[in-house]
């Protein structure tokens, strides 16, 4: 009985904390949702009006009436989809080698790779853009990258800087490092090769890590603003983040529409998160040793 009471008390405490933290973390977001449904005159009332007196969808209608958001969504999905798949495979493969295999130059190569992430994008931007423009045999370029515009204003050009993220390699390496050695030994006894061990033992065990990587790559590529801005030159190649720009002019922000559009643009990333986080439900013991 007292154990049950203790358990119930514990539940109450946990939910209280969960809800309290939700208020702090979620209030600004809730504000966005409510703002997007408020008539203009209530947006900046003081003291703030939390619950709109009338719900209006005018901001949603305005946000999507004029701009070609369906096209932007398509572009963003193409770029992000390819990026996620590419990263999942290449980052985990390299991460496995760095975490679990012994080879000459391992630490030097790893640190060198990591070093490339320590240079701010603003000074890498111009060389990166030139290399996309000079990409051989694309967009009218010859073998030496002369003559055309390369991958500028193409989907491949948009995804190029995201295809392999060194942070992803680092992430997978750290997770693979924390997997107990016994599991590898067991696989080796079964006669699995390195690739077999990676593919059949490590990948299935790393669902939480792979889900994390997907979420990371997805939001990184989805939320990128600077690169799409620089590399696109036609309206048809724009991504959703560029679409958000039009709600801000020099002096004012079309606040209601911006909130509405931001929410809609954020939805896919939230969906990916909710979808991905269900892989965070079981520990290694149940899938690995006992399985």
């Amino acid at each position: 009985m007292s154990y049950k009471r203790h358990k119930a008390f514990q539940q109450v405490v946990i939910y209280t904390v969960l809800i309290a933290v939700s208020v702090v973390m979620g209030a600004p977001f809730l504000w966005m949702v409510l703002s997007s449904l408020k008539p203009n005159h209530e947006l900046f009332a003081y003291p703030p009006v939390w619950i709109p007196s009338t719900l209006t969808f005018e901001h949603y209608i305005n946000a999507f009436r004029y701009t070609d958001f369906s096209r932007y969504f398509l572009n963003s999905f193409i770029v992000t989809g390819v990026t996620v798949i590419s990263n999942l495979f290449f980052c985990s493969l390299a991460g496995y080698a760095f975490a679990r295999m012994d080879f000459y130059g391992k630490n030097v190569i790893f640190m060198a790779l990591l070093g490339t992430m320590m240079i701010p994008i603003h000074v890498r931007l111009v060389p990166l853009f030139i290399s996309v423009r000079r990409f051989p045999l694309a967009g009218g370029n010859n073998l030496f990258g002369q003559g055309g515009t390369g991958l500028i204003d193409t989907h491949l050009g948009l995804m190029l800087p995201h295809l392999i993220n060194i942070f992803g390699v680092f992430l997978m390496r750290q997770f693979f490092q924390s997997i107990p050695q016994e599991l590898t030994d067991a696989a080796k006894i079964d006669g699995a090769g390195e690739f077999g061990t990676y593919w059949r033992i490590f990948l299935p065990l790393s669902k939480p890590a792979l889900a994390t990587l997907s979420i990371f790559v997805f939001s990184g590529s989805w939320d990128d603003f600077l690169w799409p801005l620089v590399v696109t030159s036609s309206r048809y190649m724009r991504t959703v983040q560029l679409g958000l720009q039009i709600f801000q002019s020099q002096f004012t922000v079309n606040w209601g529409s911006l909130m509405a559009a931001t929410l809609v643009v954020t939805l896919p990333v939230i969906t990916i998160f909710i979808f991905g986080q269900k892989y965070f439900v079981q520990g290694i013991a149940t899938t690995g040793l006992k399985g």
Binding site: F129, R133, S234
Partner: peptide, 20 residues
């Protein structure tokens, strides 16, 4: 193409540098 004022310099500079 309409370029936001805040990003105009960045976009111009990169396009100058790459010759486009």
């Amino acid at each position: 193409e309409f370029v936001p004022w805040s990003e105009l310099s960045t976009k111009l500079a990169t396009s100058f540098a790459a010759g486009v």
